[in-house]
């Protein structure tokens, strides 16, 4: 398959790497300084709310990655440009890891806040199901040996999963109102203080830079795979 990428675009992806790595490290250094030292503890939750600065960005990017995955699958169906199939594949693993991070950090945050590691709350349950949607996508891709076919099939699965997300969200919300445990009240979310906004913003930026770094590396892996495949076909 022809990637339809110009050399200039490939060059940008390759040259951006050292710059991205350095800026990710710098952003994380600032982010850690602000989130662990510079920001005051919350007046209700104390220092435990510092977990928010890593939990919230990972949850955001877990959801954003699935949107990109489904969006590029739709674009692939419309344009049949293989670059969209590669984008979808590259983002899937990153999204799955961030879903896992947000589940684990959320659970660690839950212990001091709710007193238990896990609550069958609507948001947590939906995130858990999202993790399995990512897993199904990646497993399906791996288990089909004909990679051309695999990209067509997994694009269809990504879209089915995306259609299913609002249905899952709706049904889990409805289920949660039926079975809401009485002792645990939902986390109230008052407006976040400005002193918390700064570390949250920097950590979000740092996580985003990291995501782009890994995403570009995965794009390069796919581009090189493509090159190797074409050379072997010729020989």
């Amino acid at each position: 398959m022809n990637l339809r990428l110009t050399n200039k675009q490939i060059n940008i992806i390759e040259k951006a790497n050292p710059f991205l790595i350095v800026s990710t490290i710098v952003a994380f250094t600032f982010g850690l300084y602000f989130s662990l030292l510079q920001s005051p503890p919350d007046y209700i939750q104390g220092d435990s709310m510092r977990i928010m600065y890593i939990h919230v960005p990972s949850a955001w990017f877990a959801l954003m990655a699935y949107t990109i995955l489904a969006g590029s699958s739709v674009l692939w169906f419309i344009t049949r440009n293989p670059i969209f199939s590669i984008i979808a594949r590259s983002i899937a693993q990153i999204g799955m890891i961030f879903t896992l991070i947000s589940l684990v950090t959320g659970s660690i945050w839950g212990k001091p806040t709710w007193g238990v590691w896990w609550v069958w709350d609507a948001r947590l349950t939906s995130m858990l199901l999202l993790f399995f949607l990512y897993l199904a996508y990646i497993f399906l891709w791996q288990s089909i040996t004909n990679k051309d076919l695999a990209s067509k099939i997994s694009a269809a699965l990504a879209i089915v999963g995306f259609v299913n997300i609002p249905i899952i969200k709706f049904s889990v919300d409805w289920w949660n109102t039926l079975h809401q445990p009485a002792t645990i009240s939902k986390l109230s979310s008052p407006s976040i203080d400005i002193s918390m906004m700064v570390p949250l913003f920097i950590m979000t930026l740092a996580t985003f830079l990291f995501l782009v770094t890994v995403f570009f590396i995965r794009l390069r892996i796919e581009i090189l795979d493509n090159k190797i495949l074409r050379i072997r076909e010729v020989e």
Binding site: L129, F132, L135, A136, L140, L157, N164, I168, S171, V172
Partner: peptide, 9 residues
């Protein structure tokens, strides 16, 4: 793994 999340609703 593919089917059970779709069964959940």
């Amino acid at each position: 793994i593919i089917v059970i999340p779709l069964f959940v609703p």
